[in-house]
């Protein structure tokens, strides 16, 4: 559980008092230093006194990046940039090398790191539609999101849009009870677009602040299921013109390069606007989101770091990049 704790420490920095933040800052610095020194130790021995990175070091970088699921293309892009920078500056010390590498990776994320995600002010319920392939953790993420928003004083309504998988409606209902938010549901097997419609209608009538619509997991190469998703999305603006305001694609950190295809197909079907990366408390690094963020210009908003109700953190690119070098 060590890595898990580390993640919690690093990422749980929201909704805290100034004092807590100071402590967190200290912890963060400590862990950054630790990461840094580990990594420095590793490479300083290898490149001290050299004016350029030799092939063995590049191989090491490559291995670290590939092993984090960053993928061949993105890894080559990062390493090429690194080599170009090193060529320009004839002499380079380990610290430069490290920060350049870190910078090159961080540059591929499009968003600024947020201290807190505030729901944009709209005159209607803010609608989040959650999509993804089977088993990535959509429903769990929705439960955690609902808790987050409720804790921030918002009125939340959930829509049980997975009417396909056995007991999926039960699962999200249990989450709704646990968090203490309203849920709109229909029978298993009913039309998910109709559930979305009902949910938005109910949320509007009750002046809710946030609506989160669950959807059944689906593999992105199943055309009919992807069309269904488009239909669910399209039905929403009949009730609320701009809905959904956010289409969140949930990705499993242990997924490899296929996540790129997932991002592509889900974006084609529903125009994905944010990413959530789940199961980061495991040993998987989830590096594939770097390429996705870069290629599709979609920000990574949340990371899931456990099965608990508050194990959802805002994404922070710096910590994320550090975790890649953290073994």
């Amino acid at each position: 559980m060590a890595l898990f704790d580390k993640f919690k420490n690093i990422f749980s920095r929201e909704n805290k008092s100034q004092e807590d933040k100071e402590i967190d800052k200290q912890k963060l610095d400590d862990s950054l230093n630790k990461t840094k020194s580990n990594f420095f130790d590793k490479i300083s021995k290898k490149i001290a006194g050299k004016s350029k990175i030799d092939d063995n070091d590049l191989d090491d970088f490559e291995e670290i990046l590939i092993s984090s699921d960053i993928g061949v293309e993105t890894t080559l892009k990062i390493i090429n940039n690194l080599e170009l920078r090193v060529k320009k500056n004839k002499y380079i010390n380990t610290e430069d090398l490290y920060s350049i590498l870190r910078e090159e990776i961080s540059n591929l994320f499009i968003q600024e790191d947020l201290e807190e995600f505030v729901i944009p002010k709209v005159n209607e319920p803010y609608v989040i539609m959650v999509v993804g392939v089977n088993g990535v953790g959509k429903t769990t993420t929705i439960g955690k999101l609902a808790y987050k928003f409720k804790s921030a004083g918002l009125k939340v309504v959930l829509g049980a849009g997975d009417t396909f998988r056995a007991a999926a409606v039960d699962q999200i209902s249990i989450w709704a009870d646990r968090v203490g938010v309203e849920i709109v549901k229909q029978e298993m097997g009913s039309d998910p677009a109709s559930v979305a419609f009902d949910t938005l209608q109910s949320a509007k009538a009750k002046n809710a602040d946030v609506v989160i619509i669950d959807t059944a997991g689906r593999l992105h190469n199943k055309i009919n299921l992807m069309n269904e998703l488009t239909k669910i999305k399209n039905v929403m603006h009949k009730i609320i013109p701009n809905a959904p305001h956010d289409v969140m694609l949930v990705l499993d950190a242990s997924t490899g390069q296929n996540a790129i295809e997932q991002a592509k197909q889900f974006t084609a079907a529903t125009k994905v606007t944010s990413l959530a990366l789940t199961k980061l408390d495991g040993s998987a690094k989830g590096g594939v989101v770097i390429g996705i963020s870069d290629q599709f210009n979609i920000p990574v908003r949340y990371i899931g770091v456990g099965e608990g109700i508050d194990d959802l953190q805002l994404f922070n690119s710096k910590e994320f990049v550090n975790s890649i070098f953290d073994n």
């Binding site: 590939i66 092993s67 984090s68 699921d69 392939v133 088993g135 499993d252 950190a253 242990s254 997924t255 490899g256 390069q257 296929n258 996540a259 495991g282 040993s283 998987a284 690094k285 594939v288």
Partner: peptide, 15 residues
Amino acid sequence: VDAMTGQDAVNTAKS
């Protein structure tokens, strides 16, 4: 195991 698993398959399968 999920067929879409990436590099972590090695750690998970071993453990």
